[in-house]
Amino acid sequence: MLVNQRQGIKQGSEKNHDPKTYDTVRSEIITIINKKVESIDHIGEHSSLITDIDLDSIEVVELITKFEDKFGIQIPMDRLTELKTVKDLERLIFSLIQKKHM
């Protein structure tokens, strides 16, 4: 029971995103990762987020933010431990997008 004052912060208008198909989401995710990682090996659906993507903890947050901005969703940080492959990431993001449009 808090007796303090709460105030809203004005934020920029959120962009409206059309519902996307799973395939579009996948290709957009892979494009974002490849742009960020600049790896010699091409990152694909079955790439491991742990062994194939060389990012430190701050860069991981940056990548997550890129997905949030692109798809207009919020990715809870405590869900990240579940993610092992790019495919896991696709599924999580796709489900968050669907939830948003429900």
Partner: peptide, 11 residues
């Protein structure tokens, strides 16, 4: 500032 960045609580 709240975790979602949308509110502030003042004490």
């Amino acid at each position: 500032v709240s975790e979602d960045g949308k509110n502030e609580s003042f004490y």
